[in-house]
Write a protein that binds this DNA or RNA. Structure first.
Length: 520
RNA sequence: GGCCCCAUCGUCUAGUUAGGUCUAGGACAUCGGAUUUUCAUUCCGGUAACAGGGGUUCAAAUCCCCUUGGGGUCACCA
């Protein structure tokens, strides 16, 4: 049987990081087997603007390079791929269930059902459907229908049976049908409910493996029953653990962002993100963008390889050694058998570590392109095409070296893009290392003349000059270098000092030295 | 509360299916040290875990039971 997996998002306007991990596992399983990966849109109760709601989801897939073989935009032999357009299929399946006696019309009002539920709870009884509507004769049903009485359609759960599945990650799981209420499969307006539509579509689309988060485990018996009643081939199941919030076992959720900000394990990620997003004009506190959403990582300048690597290692491992995996490697090595059973907390530290690794592997040209677009978006350069700008930025990127973990980190070297006036100064360190020392100021003044007359303003000669100067004046490197850096870049630390000076060029260095010294 | 799932270093995990080679391995984080003009990198090294209790067995992280803890789900949502 060919492997066909699906990911069926509801169009919510953003792509959840945990959902992305589920999608990745589906994609990996299909690709590993040379199968088919399908995207289906579960929009059975959608009123909102589809473009706005679905766009970010497809965008996340495209960004990460998870292509789908069937679904929106690409179509396929089992379309349409929007549940809102598949009503005919659901209606037909409903009729079949009704006519074979696997489902029945229930005229009980929601209030009545609710009351029974509460009564059962009060009496510590298991609640199961009353099934009074089942006593109705065919004529009585027709009469009620003719009278316009509202009813829902419920699946008739077979009493006395047990549903057993052999889950790829959880093994044997079973449920007692005597404990299950008859689930509603169609609303009073005839529209299908999730569990029902899913079953109809999974069968119609010939899904071989349903790989989804553990939170769906409790839906499974209902779906198995539905498949049976419909005479479908039952797909194989794999309930993977959901992605938890850092350091917890709780499902990571968009609604808990405020709490995550206080989470020490999340700190580093938020700091990184806030620094970048504020430069890009996003209001960090507004949470329009948060680490729960895939788009966040793209905006901050993460690489698909970094995100994918972090996600694949959440709940899955290849062996006791392998940590770094490219998309091709994970595709080749992935298996459901090695998915772990317990929930895995997203680990921001490890995510950043994977990201740093993949950034270090990125070819210089790609690094340049990425930084260019970030600098442009922040208004630090005016064109990404100008040859002069490109070669200058390339030099800065090269200088940044491994300080660049995400593209947004390029903003930390803003001293190369800001004018002398705009340059922000680390006042505390400037006071400590420059302003408070007359000797240092004297030395810097003297150094200025030497820099002025240096033949070649290049890293090598600058290095020699600075070292000789320190020796000549009988001072320590620590007395001069940090002070010089502060004057020229405004920062207490940063990239290689000599190369920084070279890149800034004699003019800017001298001018900034002047400005800083005159401010003392 | 019912049903279901889960339980190894701070975190992600290997080891559990086929009990012994596990005085429990790796990675991230952390702490030392080396390199370095700062920071970062890199390289060495350290700290750190089988939730608890009963069994079964010559032998249990591994099998069984109980307890505890955590989580998911209980809609005319998906």
């Amino acid at each position: 049987m060919p492997v066909r997996t699906r990911f069926a998002p509801s169009p919510t306007g953003y792509m959840h990081i945990g959902g992305m991990r589920t999608a990745l596992f589906n994609w990996l399983w299909a690709r590993h087997h040379g199968g088919t990966f399908i995207l289906r849109i579960d929009d059975t109760d959608q009123q909102r603007n589809m473009d706005e709601a679905l766009g970010p989801i497809l965008q996340a897939f495209r960004w990460l390079g998870l292509n789908w073989d069937e679904g929106p935009e690409v179509g396929g032999p089992h379309g349409p791929y929007f549940q809102s357009q598949r009503r005919g299929l659901y209606d037909a399946a409903l009729q079949k269930l009704l006519s074979t006696g696997h489902a029945y019309r229930d005229f009980e009002t929601p209030a009545e059902t609710q009351a029974q539920r509460e009564a059962a709870e009060r009496e510590k009884r298991v609640y199961v459907s009353s099934r009074v509507s089942l006593q109705l004769t065919a004529d009585e049903v027709q009469a009620k229908l003719a009278a316009g009485e509202a009813c829902v359609i419920r699946l008739l759960v077979p009493r006395g049976e047990t549903v057993v599945i052999n889950d790829h990650v959880r093994g044997t799981v079973e449920w007692d049908c005597n404990l299950m209420p008859d689930p509603v499969i169609a609303r009073s307006d005839g529209s299908p409910l999730y569990n029902f539509a899913t079953v109809v579509d999974d069968a119609a689309m010939e899904i071989s493996h349903v790989i989804r988060a553990e939170e769906h485990l409790s839906n499974t018996p209902i779906q198995v029953l539905l498949h049976r009643a419909l005479g479908n081939v039952i797909p194989e199941w794999a309930h993977i653990p959901y992605v938890a919030a850092p350091g917890s076992k709780e499902k990571i959720s968009k609604r808990k962002i405020a709490a995550y900000r206080k989470n020490p394990q999340f700190q580093k990620l938020f700091e990184l993100g806030d620094a970048v997003l504020s430069r890009l004009g996003f209001d960090a506190a507004a949470d329009a963008l948060s680490p729960v959403m895939v788009a966040y990582y793209q905006q901050v300048g993460f690489l698909p390889a970094g995100i994918l690597n972090a996600l694949v290692r959440l709940g899955w491992s290849y062996d006791d050694q392998t940590e770094v995996l490219s998309r091709e490697e994970m595709q080749q090595k992935f298996s459901l058998e090695r998915v772990i059973r317990s929930p895995a907390g997203l680990d921001p530290d490890k995510l950043i570590s994977f990201q740093s690794h993949w950034m270090s592997q990125l070819p210089a040209d790609d690094k340049l392109e990425g930084c260019l677009s970030f600098l442009l978006a922040a208004g630090l350069i005016s064109s990404a095409d100008d040859p002069g700008t490109r070669s200058y930025v390339a030099a800065v990127v090269d200088l940044a070296a491994d300080r660049l973990r995400v593209f947004g980190d390029i903003f930390q070297l803003d001293e190369f893009f800001l004018s002398d006036e705009q340059l922000s100064v680390d006042v505390k360190n400037f006071d400590k290392r420059v302003r408070s020392s007359a000797t240092t100021q004297e030395n810097l003044l003297l150094l200025k003349d030497r820099l002025q007359s240096l033949a070649d303003f290049l890293a090598g000669p600058l290095h020699d000059l600075l070292q000789a100067f320190v020796a000549e004046r009988g001072i320590r490197v620590g007395d001069l270098f940090p002070a010089l850096r502060l004057c020229v870049t405004g920062k207490a630390q940063g990239a290689d000092l000599f190369r920084s000076l070279e890149l800034l060029g004699r003019e800017r260095v001298l001018r900034r030295l002047d400005r800083s010294l005159s401010g003392c």
